[in-house]
Structure formats: C-alpha cells, structure tokens
C-alpha cells in the first residue's frame, strides 16, 4: 500500500485519499474554438512519465497537486495549488 504525502497532513496511506484526475491549468473558454474546447474537456493525457495530478485528502478536505513519475512509480513532490504554482 502506497504512501502519499499531503502538504498539510503529512505522509498517509493511499486509502485516505481520493484521486482527482489530471491537473489542467484553467483556460479562458472564450479564447478557445469549439474543437479546442472539446479537446480540453474530454481529452486526457495518458502517456507514461511525470504526471501532474489532483489528489484530495478526504478526512481533512484538502486538495493538492502531486507530481508523480508513473514510469518509475515515484512521487516527486506534492504542494497546494496556487495560481502561480499551478498554471506554469
């Protein structure tokens, strides 16, 4: 059973968390044409490598971002979302 480190609550077993899907920097919908918007909401990147993902610590209600290398089965870092940190 894996361990994931919540930025607020520290290292916890994985069953304390809920997986929230791939992190995608929020885009301005008005700037995208229909086709690009369709890609944005329906397409997810599945290729192995370093993934940026949303995770949620259920008991404390904490959303955070985990950078995870799923080729090496390794969590690189976890941090709380801020516009500066999330959208680069």
């Amino acid at each position: 059973m894996k361990i994931l480190t919540c930025p607020l609550n520290g290292p916890r077993p994985i069953q304390e968390f809920h997986y929230g899907g791939e992190f995608r920097p929020p885009l301005d919908p008005a700037q995208l044409n229909d086709a690009d918007w369709g890609q944005e909401v329906h397409h997810r990147h599945g290729e192995p490598g370093v993934k940026r993902e949303w995770w949620y610590h259920t008991a404390s209600g904490t959303w955070f971002i985990a950078e995870r290398d799923n080729l090496q089965d390794r969590v690189i870092q976890t941090y709380l979302y801020t516009p500066e940190r999330g959208n680069d």
Binding site: H18, G20, P26, Y56, G61, W63, L80, Y81
Partner: peptide, 19 residues
Amino acid sequence: YRELLRWRQLFQLDVQISN
C-alpha cells in the same frame, strides 16, 4: 462538496464552504 472545494481553490475567491 469535494468539487466545490476544488473550484474554490481554482477560483481563489474569498468564500467558505461548510458541509
């Protein structure tokens, strides 16, 4: 509720959500 907490972070609004 969980999704609202996520949107709260993304929107960065001054709002509290209590379940």
